[in-house]
């Protein structure tokens, strides 16, 4: 499809192409996000920032699902690990090294993901992997709930937003908008890294493993190591997102490791579009709008979310991103035919 489009582009040069339109949209969305502090009040800004963090976390999950073909139901546990690392370090007074703390959160997430992967990946796949990860994150939640030094069921609260010191300059992140811009910048860095990984040889290898594990092995791909690497990367992204989330929310609770948090990236990805890099991000923001619009209606929120999910699965399996791309393709094709 893309090659035929490219040929047609070179012959007729239509004014609008799909990559062109999509890049414009992404640029517009980025500008809107950056300008958010001037456009909304602090309550909505908090919501947008949270969604941005969750979107990044879901992109990391989708890297594991759409590229390596592994559905983890326990990513909330890795998110919680990052959040608790960050919360504990800030409360201990290391907040001027916040960048290092975020890296430590990512490292902790990656380490735990690697330990899980080393044991689990050789023996389990599919449903067993899903249940195993689900119960490991529940195990973490129960342990956190009963560990007094980590605040038991109440979690750790009063997490101050840090003042970054980078040797020469100090950046004050204590106010809402500045921390929001910090989230934007780190989201851009993480998403850039993920984009680079998924669109290079590593991403290709993972796709080969997902499509046909046996043939991938035949052509010399180390299947186990590729999957493990994908799991570790997605763990690092989850831990990193958690570490950034903790000072933004200013409180971390064991519920971060619960089933709701773990299933969020699945819902976002599905709604936004499988096999699409930006899908989870789109899904996260659409969900945010739905939840915000239905926040006062008890019960209706679940019904609407469930109905949308069912509709996506039964009718638009490619999600928002996939349907959008198909629509644009049809429109540009018609234009080119004329």
């Amino acid at each position: 499809m893309s090659s035929s489009l490219a040929e047609r582009d070179s012959r007729r040069k239509p004014a609008l192409t799909r990559p062109g339109i999509n890049n414009t949209l992404i640029a517009l969305a980025t500008l809107t996000l950056l300008a958010m502090p001037f456009l909304t009040n602090s309550g909505l800004l908090y919501l947008v920032g949270t969604t941005l963090v969750l979107g990044v976390y879901s992109v990391g999950w989708n890297l594991l699902f759409s590229w390596a073909g592994l559905a983890s139901f326990g990513s909330g546990g890795l998110f919680a690990i990052g959040a608790y690392v960050s919360a504990a370090a800030i409360r201990a007074g290391y907040d001027q090294f916040f960048l290092l703390i975020v890296l430590a959160g990512a490292g902790a997430g990656a380490l735990v993901a690697m330990l899980v992967g080393l044991v689990a990946l050789r023996r389990t796949t599919g449903i067993f992997f899903a249940i195993l990860t689900l119960s490991l994150s529940e195990l973490l939640r129960h342990t956190l709930m009963h560990t007094r030094s980590l605040g038991s069921e109440d979690g750790l609260s009063n997490i101050t937003r840090p003042v970054l010191s980078l040797g020469v300059v100090e950046i004050d992140l204590t106010s809402g908008p500045t921390y929001y811009w910090f989230i934007c910048v780190s989201a851009a860095v993480i998403l850039g890294l993920c984009w680079w990984l998924t669109h290079g040889p590593f991403g290709r290898r993972l796709l080969a493993v997902r499509h046909d594990i046996e043939r991938a092995g035949f052509i010399g791909i180390d299947v186990h190591r590729s999957r493990l690497a994908a799991l570790v990367i997605s763990g690092a992204v989850a831990g990193c997102a958690g570490a950034i989330y903790a000072p933004w929310a200013q409180i971390v609770t064991p519920e971060l490791s619960g089933m709701v948090r773990s299933t969020q990236p699945i819902l976002f990805t599905l709604l936004g579009g499988l096999q699409s890099f930006w899908g989870p991000m789109i899904g996260a923001f659409v969900f945010m709008v739905i939840e915000y619009a239905t926040r006062t209606l008890v019960g209706i929120q679940e019904i609407i979310t469930g109905a949308i999910l069912l509709a996506v699965i039964l009718a638009f399996r490619a999600g928002i991103a996939g349907s959008w791309n198909a629509l644009i393709d049809r429109l540009t094709e018609r234009r080119a035919d004329k």
């Binding site: 599905l270 679940e302 979310t305």
Partner: peptide
């Protein structure tokens, strides 16, 4: 898996 999750949401709602 996700379809049954959606049915669960409908039922809980």
């Amino acid at each position: 898996l996700i379809a049954t999750y959606a049915v669960m949401l409908l039922c809980v709602g």
